[in-house]
Nucleic acid binder design. Structure first.
Lengths: 154, 154
DNA sequence: GGTGGTAAGTTTGATTTTCGGACGTACCGT
DNA sequence: ACGGTACGTCCGAAAATCAAACTTACCACC
């Protein structure tokens, strides 16, 4: 594994949702595709990898697995509060992808409860101003320290 | 590769910055660690993988590679406008990691230009209200279509 | 002019992960 | 009994990742 790394909540967050297919699986659950085969179809992940990802997301408390039929046994995946709290990350990625990667118009559009087409903005909770990269400065940094393993177990 | 997948800017964004170490490398550049050895030390990535990630981020227009010394030849990496535009994603991940993953106090703290400790919030650009997961509904979804390759070239 | 150090990678060979297709299990409908 | 659906697991092949050693290019000191 790695020798040293900065102690950092970005790294910690990515250890939980940063592996391939994890955020896309969460996206599907948020979009209402809650069943295994739908998530496979809509993400394009391999069945075994997706099963592993869903297991680890459930273990991390991001998703919840619920049985909605006993005969036959059928399950669905729901976002927990922690999972719903990732919405800003998904919306941020979508907005960035719309602007800098996707050619043509945004493939997916959301509506906010105010009635408008949702365009997410990142603002400072204190002053309400939009956060610009040059208006933000690190004031305390996590230490760089020896690590044995950066990655999630499982 | 995969058979089908949803056309989606989240997936497109992740094809550019979703591989392991990419966002952590960008984090380091944002924090002011612009040189190769610093990024290796602070992320914990292998040198060869990091070199590949930096190459692909430069190719995608997220980072820029600049020579700051000719003798000896030395280089640094800077965030482009597209790279700086990922700040909300990094802050969103950090905030989520602080809340749901990292034990104890936030390892890294930023200050906003207003003087306050930065706490990022995701709001609707139209009404300014904070975006809650249950206040957002998809109104148009990208098609699920056959794909040959979801991943970035390189 | 030889030794040591720094910076930015590249090479190497072993390990780990991912891939997609086939298979398994449990049930339902006809 | 046969076909279909849902939710995975298993398999061997292919690709990605790992850590350490090596390379190149320069500078500083003795």
């Amino acid at each position: 594994m790695s020798r040293t790394a900065r102690e950092c909540s970005i790294a910690n967050a990515l250890a939980v949702v940063g592996e391939r297919w994890s955020l896309l699986a969460l996206r599907e659950v948020m979009l209402g595709a809650r069943r295994f085969d739908q998530i496979v179809e809509n993400t394009g992940a391999s069945r075994d990898i997706l099963a592993a990802r869903l297991r680890s997301l459930v273990a991390a408390g991001v998703l919840e697995k619920r049985q909605y039929s006993e005969h036959p046994p059928r399950h669905e995946y729901l976002a927990t509060e922690a999972g719903r709290a990732l919405q800003p990350v998904l919306l941020g990625l979508m907005d960035w992808g719309d602007r800098y990667v996707t050619a043509g118009p945004p493939p997916t559009v959301w509506r906010h409860s105010c009635g408008a087409e949702l365009r997410p903005r990142c603002v400072c909770a204190s002053c309400g101003e939009q956060v610009e990269a040059n208006g933000v400065t690190p004031v305390r940094l996590g230490d760089v320290r020896p690590v044995t393993d950066v990655r999630p177990t499982g």
